[in-house]
Amino acid sequence: MKEYKIIKQKAKLRNSDGDFEDQLNSYAREGWIVKSSVAINGSSYFKIILERDKNR
Rank of each mutant, 00 (worst) to 15 (best):
M1H: 07
K2V: 05
E3I: 08
Y4A: 11
Y4M: 12
Y4D: 11
I6L: 13
I6A: 10
K8R: 13
Q9Y: 04
K10A: 14
K10E: 13
A11D: 12
K12M: 12
L13S: 07
R14I: 14
N15L: 08
N15K: 12
N15D: 12
S16R: 11
G18R: 10
E21K: 15
D22P: 00
D22C: 02
Q23W: 01
Q23Y: 05
N25K: 13
N25A: 06
N25M: 08
N25V: 02
S26K: 10
S26F: 07
Y27P: 05
A28L: 05
A28C: 08
R29G: 12
E30G: 01
E30L: 09
G31D: 05
I33F: 04
K35N: 11
S37L: 07
I40L: 15
I40Y: 04
N41S: 15
N41H: 11
G42C: 09
G42I: 05
S43I: 09
S44P: 08
S44M: 13
Y45M: 13
Y45E: 12
Y45D: 12
Y45P: 02
F46I: 09
K47M: 14
I48K: 03
I48F: 11
I49T: 11
I49A: 03
L50I: 04
E51D: 06
D53K: 09
D53G: 10
D53Y: 07
K54R: 03
N55A: 09
N55E: 12
R56P: 05
